[in-house]
C-alpha cells in the first residue's frame, strides 16, 4: 500500500512538471510562433544570433523557440519535423550540413512553412524563401585592402576551411585584392577547418617549413587564434600580421592587445534583425530578396573601442 502511494506521488510529480510546461505554453498562445534551429548553441556567435532573433520577434508580440541539434544533422531534421507537426508559422534555419538538410526543407515546403536561412547557405536554395548571410567576399577584401596599406610585400600563409561556403568566399575576396599586388606571395595554404585545435598544428608546420612569414589570414577567429598561439610559441609573433574574419569577443581582445592586426566583423545581431524583418515582410505578402548580404566592417586597433568588448556586435 505504501509502495503504491509512493508510486502515485512520483507520477503526480511528473504530471506537475509537464503541466508546468503546458501552462507556460497556454498563456501566450496568441500571435505567431516561430522555430529557430542552429547547428549548435554552444558557440557564442549563434547565442548572439538567436538573442537578436528572439528580441525582434518579441517586439512583434510573437514568440520563437530555439532548437539545438549540436552538430547532428539527423537530430536537426527530427526536431524540425516535430516543430512542423506542432504548427509553426515560420522557420529560421542555420544548417548543420548544407546539403544534408534537404529532407527538413522538403517537409517545411510541404507544410507551406517559409524557411529563412541565416549565416550559412543551403545547397537546395530553391526550397527556401531567403538567405541572410554576412558579405563574406567583402570581409576578405577588407582584410586584403588593409594589408596592402601596411606592408610593401611579403610571404602569406592562408588557413582555410575548404568545405565551408562562407570561408571559401572570404578567401576568394582576400585573394582578389592580392591579384593586383604581385609583391605578395602566398607561400602556403593549409586547411584548419575553422577550429583552433586544427589551426595550431597546421601553423606550427608552416613555421617549420618557411623561415619568413609576414602575414597569416585565417578563415575565422578561432583559426586565427590558433595561428597566434603557434606564432607566440615559436617567438615569431612580432614579425607577423594576422588577419581574420568574425569580430568575436576573443578576437577583439587579441586586436586590443596588438596580437591580431584586423578582423572583418560579422554582425550576428544584424543578421538576426534582418532575418526577422524579411520574415514578417514575406508573411505580409511582400516579395523579399532571395539573398540578403549583411555588411561587414574591419576592426583594427584604431576602431576596436567603438565595438562592444564582451559580446558580438
Amino acid at each position: 500500500m505504501k509502495k503504491r502511494f509512493i508510486l502515485l506521488i512520483s507520477l503526480l510529480a511528473i504530471v506537475t512538471c509537464f503541466s508546468e510546461a503546458m501552462g507556460r505554453k497556454e498563456n501566450n498562445n496568441e500571435g505567431l510562433f516561430f522555430a529557430a534551429s542552429y547547428m549548435t548553441l554552444n558557440n557564442p556567435f549563434f547565442v548572439a544570433l538567436h538573442q537578436s532573433i528572439e528580441d525582434a520577434v518579441e517586439t512583434h508580440g510573437d514568440r520563437v523557440v530555439a532548437l539545438n541539434p549540436d552538430y547532428d544533422q539527423i537530430l536537426q531534421i527530427t526536431q524540425i519535423e516535430d516543430m512542423i507537426s506542432l504548427g509553426i508559422d515560420g522557420l529560421f534555419l542555420n544548417p548543420v550540413d548544407w546539403k544534408g538538410i534537404r529532407p527538413a526543407l522538403e517537409a517545411a515546403n510541404k507544410a507551406d512553412i517559409p524557411v529563412f536561412v541565416v549565416d550559412a547557405p543551403v545547397y537546395d536554395d530553391k526550397l527556401v524563401v531567403s538567405t541572410i548571410v554576412s558579405d563574406n567576399h567583402e570581409a576578405g577584401k577588407l582584410a586584403g585592402l588593409d594589408l596592402v596599406t601596411r606592408l610593401d610585400g611579403g610571404n602569406i600563409v592562408i588557413l582555410d576551411h575548404p568545405t565551408n561556403k562562407p570561408s571559401i568566399n572570404r578567401i576568394l575576396g582576400f585573394l582578389e585584392i592580392l591579384q593586383s599586388h604581385p609583391e605578395f606571395t602566398v607561400v602556403s595554404r593549409l586547411s584548419a577547418f575553422g577550429t583552433l585545435e586544427e589551426a595550431l598544428p597546421q601553423m606550427e608546420n608552416a613555421l617549420q617549413a618557411h623561415n619568413k612569414i609576414d602575414v597569416v589570414f585565417g578563415s575565422n577567429d578561432p583559426t586565427s587564434l590558433g595561428a597566434i598561439a603557434a606564432l607566440v610559441g615559436a617567438k615569431r609573433m612580432s614579425k607577423t600580421l594576422v588577419y581574420s574574419v568574425d569580430g568575436s569577443p576573443e578576437g577583439k581582445e587579441m586586436i586590443k592587445s596588438g596580437l591580431m592586426t584586423g578582423s572583418s566583423a560579422q554582425s550576428p545581431r544584424e543578421i538576426g534583425r534582418i532575418a526577422v524583418e524579411l520574415m514578417y515582410k514575406h508573411l505580409e505578402g511582400e516579395i523579399v530578396p532571395a539573398t540578403q548580404f549583411v555588411p561587414v566592417t574591419l576592426i583594427t586597433q584604431d576602431n576596436v573601442d567603438e565595438f562592444p568588448a564582451d559580446e558580438w556586435q
Binding site: F18, A21, K25, V65, A66, N68, T78, D82, M83
Partner: peptide, 25 residues
C-alpha cells in the same frame, strides 16, 4: 518522449536530463 519534449519546447539541455530521468524511473 523525444517528440513530446520538442513539442512542449523544453530546452534541449533539459531534454537530456528529462530523458535520462524518465528511463531511470
Amino acid at each position: 518522449l523525444n517528440n513530446g519534449l520538442n513539442i512542449l519546447n523544453i530546452n534541449s539541455f533539459w531534454q537530456l536530463i528529462a530523458k535520462g530521468l524518465v528511463i531511470l524511473l
